[in-house]
Write a protein that binds this DNA or RNA. Structure first.
Lengths: 225, 225
DNA sequence: GTGTAATGTTTGACTACTCAAACTAATGGA
DNA sequence: TCCATTAGTTTGAGTAGTCAAACATTACAC
């Protein structure tokens, strides 16, 4: 198994490559996520390339090989199962479990992971609505489109929240904006760049930028599969 | 929080000092437990002394200060609660949970630990019968006397198994020698240095050296308090 | 009481990870 | 097109932990 440090880099590179249009992760953003200086990120990118976990080109960014991707998905599986466990079994608040899982994910063996998966009933999404990869590393495409793209009158179901920031999650939870919740878009104000939705907890207005971090799907679609 | 490495040394020194008549831990045994060379153990002993976690004298062994003891007991609490969780909630076999807990114990925050403790119903012994320190660092004295000290005809209750070796635990479990089990001593053969006991799973003969790792108490004594 | 075995210490070197700071390359206005 | 800004790289140095091996001390058996 890779060191904890290496695992963190792999996970960060994986997410950055997903988001980036070029499919490459830049050093500045990578360094910011991992919490090191860019020089350190460059050094690690080279090291990962030497270990065949990543491809690296001078001034050309870093991306994962098949081997690196497999390892990254594995870590994500551990992370999301642990988050699910922390919320479902230990009843911790979903706004804090990300940070906790971040530490525990490196210490969990396959045996414990399998037992955890079984205990939780083989869930396929974590508390934030993110899909949990299966044990073979298969990862469903996350569903839903940004709430910011919905129009007035749309009635949708919240599928996932793509931001692990405690502050944002607390805000979302307080207004009933959790995965599985049904909301109706009341108004979209292009000038104010805001959107107002009716949730169980009442109406909320938030910036489109914030609504972009909330993924919605047709209210009819089921919870699973 | 101390590093994972430091935590492992503290735990090892704590156990060694308990066992040793002088109350000091020697470098050779310390190094063996932690899995390093004696030179490395010496270096760490000095480092711990500098951090006021331990007392160290050249050629005189190492022992924990109050601060070091507090930290060690805290780690032991995490370890034993996690072991209990792995057996009780995840249904893993008690023979393997020691090694698993060894890795997880360093990644658990006070918040998660508290939730775990609550989930498990605030247990006071782990699956091996070892007492779990409370959150203030209070640790009951482990009860029982070695099974090897019992005489023929004694009817006792197994209180704890003081060996975390997978092989020994598998043997013990196979013959019904688990904490809480009632056994009757059938015979003690001083010449053969062996003892034979009647357990639920049938009669077993084991060396006195092995029986020394099993603690027994009067069959009448209750499970708790 | 002396020599040997056991135990403990020191040193120099290595790996993994990190930073600061000097430096280089790419990018994108005006 | 040029040059400032941003992004990326390199270097030198530091911390934490480790080992091997030379060395020092202690314990104890005779």
């Amino acid at each position: 198994m890779a060191t904890e440090t290496v695992e963190n880099y792999l996970k960060a590179i994986y997410t950055l490559c997903r988001e980036s249009p070029t499919g490459e992760a830049g050093m500045t953003r990578l360094a910011a996520i991992v919490g090191v200086t860019t020089g350190t990120a460059t050094a690690m990118a080279k090291k990962l390339a030497k270990a065949k976990l990543a491809r690296y080109q001078r001034f050309g960014g870093v991306s994962l090989t098949a081997k690196g991707t497999r390892a990254a998905v594995d870590i994500i599986r551990r992370h999301r199962l642990i988050e699910t466990f922390l919320v479902q079994t230990l009843k911790l608040d979903w706004s804090i479990v990300h940070a906790e899982a971040e530490r525990i994910e490196h210490a969990i063996s396959p045996v414990v992971l399998e037992a955890l998966d079984k205990l939780l009933g083989r869930p396929d999404v974590d508390p934030h609505g993110d899909p949990i990869p299966d044990s073979d590393g298969r990862l469903r495409d996350p569903r839903g489109e940004p709430l910011s793209d919905c129009g007035a009158g749309d009635s949708v179901r919240i599928a996932r929240i793509t931001d692990q920031e405690e502050r944002f999650l607390l805000f979302a939870a307080r207004h009933g904006l959790r995965p599985g919740a049904h909301v109706t878009v009341l108004a979209v104000d292009a000038a104010a760049e805001s959107i107002t939705v009716q949730a169980d907890a009442g109406p909320v207005t938030l910036a489109l930028a914030a609504a972009r971090k909330i993924m919605a799907e047709d209210a009819a679609e089921g919870r699973r599969r």
